[in-house]
Design a protein around this nucleic acid. Structure first.
Lengths: 185, 185
DNA sequence: GACGATACGGAACGATCGTTCCGTTTGTCA
DNA sequence: TGACAAACGGAACGATCGTTCCGTATCGTC
């Protein structure tokens, strides 16, 4: 690997990270290339497809989240384990627009490697939810799918409406509170 | 107006309503035309632009929602007024994908007439929220913008994940419960 | 310093989609 | 029924975007 090529590869990754985070997966690939100070041809030699570049950006963060979910499975306080993870997930999603795109694209395209990672995250959340239910910390009828959709949908909407940080945090609070066990119906 | 033209106009509206509801604003205009059994040229003579057709479909429903919000302002029970409206809003949004697109497009394009209508809905919800706060039925710190984003984001995510009806209803329940006043922190 | 392999840039291609244009058909009215 | 305006259908246009291709520049080695 030539030194020049290595430098360009890193510049592309850097540009893609900031650009995808700001504008999501929908930005034209030319914009990323320009941001990196590189021609499109160069970009495509390093990453055979737009999706590949996207995966390179998102997969590591997704893996890290999955790891954090799994780590919390053995925590002492199942309620805190679930809710602290959800808050961590929300903050990640609020900061970087591309996480949603990864999760939504994952829902549609079977082929994407992100899909597996998202599915593994769902399994992790499922365990956290089951544990939290065991100590009556969350409603007994809620599912992991619902929890994921609730958090990601909330963050997506908050981001789209350009709400400020306090609003975003409050919205996550509201969703988490709602998932807790209702005292009496 | 020729009889033929009138019939086609209605067929276009009908096709657009079902197609937009199912697939959202992103469906190609050709699909709507084909569904209506009509050429694209005909469609464009009746509606000068895709956005115009979309407005024709969505505006009336949006107006109806705004009316319902305003009607509930004078209700006896402010808490029920707010939450029954939110449930109504959620059901409308869950049934028809185009409502989101209207609201999101409204956020971006100043020009769209939908934007004004969405803004008016926000004002209506704001009053409902203020009234509900007055009787301690919702958290004192939540805003109308947050309420709208919470509901629409939740419905959008539920729809995207193709969750079943029971899940969708439960998610709306969770969000509404979370907005209620926390008993003690 | 020169040569060959490697990498670069960006013009060009093909697909998609909103919109326009025009030759043809069809409804309406005398 | 005939003629004209109104309406129709769909091919074609232009813009956007992902991807490919190839002539040119650059790096690494002797």
């Amino acid at each position: 690997m030539r030194a020049d090529a290595l430098k360009n590869r890193e510049r592309i990754l850097e540009a893609a990270e900031t650009t995808f985070a700001r504008l999501g997966l929908s930005v034209p690939i030319d914009v990323v290339a320009e941001q990196a100070g590189v021609g499109v041809g160069t970009l495509y030699r390093h990453f055979p497809t737009k999706e590949a570049l996207f995966e390179a950006i998102v997969m590591s963060r997704l893996e890290e989240l999955v790891d954090e979910a799994k780590t919390r499975i053995d925590a002492n306080d199942p309620a805190d384990a679930l809710f602290s993870f959800l808050r961590r997930f929300a903050n990640e999603a609020l900061a970087k627009a591309d996480l949603f795109d990864a999760m939504n694209a994952a829902g549609f395209d079977i082929k994407s490697r992100c899909a597996e990672m998202v599915d593994e995250m769902r399994r992790g959340i499922d365990i956290l939810v089951v544990n939290a239910k065991a100590v009556d910390a969350v409603r007994p009828d809620v599912t992991a799918d619902e929890v994921m959709s609730l958090i990601s949908g909330t963050c997506m909407a908050a981001r789209q409406s350009r709400l400020d940080d306090a609003s975003c945090q409050r919205m996550v609070d509201i969703v988490c509170d709602g998932m807790r066990l209702a005292v009496a119906t």
